[in-house]
Nucleic acid binder design. Sequence first.
RNA 1: GGAGUCGUAGUUCAGUUGGUUAGAACGCCAGCCUGUCACGUUGGAGGUCGCGGGUUCGAGUCCCGUCGGCUCCGCCA
Length: 630
Amino acid sequence: MKLEAGYRTKIKLFIRAYSRYSRAISFFMLDTLGNLERTHTCGELRESDVGKQVVLMGWVAKKRDFGVFTFIDLRDRGGLTQVVVSEETAKEAHVKAKNLRGEFVLAVRGEVVSRADGTHNSKLATGDIEVKVGEILVLNEAKVPPFQLEVAGTENLASEDTRLKYRYLDLRRPRLQHNILTRAKAVARIREYMDERGFIEIETPILLKSTPEGARDFIVPSRIHTGKFFALPQSPQILKQITMIAGFDKYYQIARCFRDEDLRADRQPEFTQLDVEMSFANAEMVYRVMEGVFGHVFKLINVDLPEQWPRMTYAEAMRRYGSDKPDLRFEMELQDLSGELTDTDFSPFAEVLGKGGEIKAVVVKGKADYSRKVLDELQEFVKRYGASGLAWIKLGDETTSSLLKVLGLGTIERLASTAKAEKGDAILMVAGKKSVVAAALGALRNEIGKRENSIDRSAYRTLIVTEFPMFEHDEDTDRYTAAHHPFTSPMDEDLELFKQAVENDAEHHLLGQVRAKAYDAVINGYECAGGSIRIHQKEIQALNFKALGMSIEKAREQFGFFLDALEYGTPPHGGFAAGIERTCMILCGTENIRDVMAFPKTASAQDLMMDSPGEIDGAQLGELGIKVND
RNA sequence: GGAGUCGUAGUUCAGUUGGUUAGAACGCCAGCCUGUCACGUUGGAGGUCGCGGGUUCGAGUCCCGUCGGCUCCGCCA
């Protein structure tokens, strides 16, 4: 037994050594490119090119060996072309072809020939022709890839961590090539549009100063100023406003932004924004630029967005859809049942209404046959958003409901009618605090839209959401924080209310009612852009800092330079920032931000290819005066 | 910080109530093959069942912990 095992090991070692040897041999057999130039990409040859002598270069996508001749699917970013190598007509090339493997890099020289009847491939853009090869140059070989690039469909793709580790291989897949290309084109169109309309591209620093509000900063230590730190921009907000004070009038930038927060399917720690600011602009003027630039970009995928997008106030969006970024590709609006239940003696509902909460519902068309299992799943779903439960009514052959015993059939039927439900429908109800009801039902609406396939995948529904609240109430600290950012202007109509709330402590809670000149651009349920008209007068800015509980001294410490700048003739101004990745996700029809970034990070904010973040040298730390705790 | 889910061959997955030597497909290696394009065909190699502990006569399977991927909540002015 032992002897045999030892023998096997020896054989294995021999084979390993031999294969290394033969690899070394084959290295010396590689061809050189020399002065050879390619004449076409692998995606462009057609019937009309038949007879041409061509040179293609690319990667071996697939090899099909038939003994006396061999087919190779050659791939580059242009597409795929079938090349044929015959032993009879190209002896040397044929020997080389037999030894090829996936992802070897080739140059092939040959003649474009029409395919014989019955051998055309309609799945391939180049499927009417093939290249009859006279010469093959093996420009480089490739190890066997750790996963298969060419698989039918996307179901059998290797797991994402494997693909992220070998991102350069994953990026060779036509799908990702297409996405990255689309992104490049989208950015090019953005520059084209902004440039034509007189916007000036201005770069702002990446090394900034940390500010306490907002997202967590990424921090960069300063070597020259030991113990001091730069922060990477969460967005170039203040700097773009300063370009307005500096008189540039119309600014834009394709700006990289950094936020040290947890990731999501549509959120990465670094991402790119189209950042825009305009002087002497009102909100409508900003909307027109948003509509225009998105319209221009969506022509890339042959979609005509409306010239003027529908407008909806934040309050209306929350009331009707439970979301400030409603997906308008399907209906299913929230129905308010609070009115029907004001006099209910069912204590959970009475209690909710007594505390100023509400009871709302969504109607799921034709789903009176929802099973107990599905309803349980949906209940678990809404609980994630803080809902205490999910009540249901099913208008089947008979009307059933989780509330039948406590409310009685009469009330149930009245609720169904108020909710505008019809026979065959299911009604799903959530009771609770307004914010919880909106969050739970808003999310449930999207979930059911997906589940029931009621989203029109070919539709692109746009919306501008206006009149966002100026402040958000933080329940833990009982403080008001800026809903957008601390330079956002209140609405003119709410200015008096704002002053009153700031100046009288007793009326501080009125801050919750102040609306801002803040807005979002929404496409298909994604917040693609957001912005505001800014405060340009120092008195209002001072009021705002006070509202946020920030002393003048503190504000000066944080934003002194900006407050100074505001005092030197600041024009009224406003703007927006659009998420490049989210926009490209919609353009590319993907729900994952990693599909539109060349080198994304994992959900735990790591780069699996370069294995970042990494540790640094003790000496490097010493130079920066930094000590890392264990 | 919390929840869900997944982790078995290079890859995608199957693996029954805990029970003999852990399977399939693709890929890989070696042949054969004159029209394939998911080529076909013959043969072959390939496994730390993520990792660590525990229960048990016996663990891929059960329990605890841990690491990693993905998704969600919190977070993201």
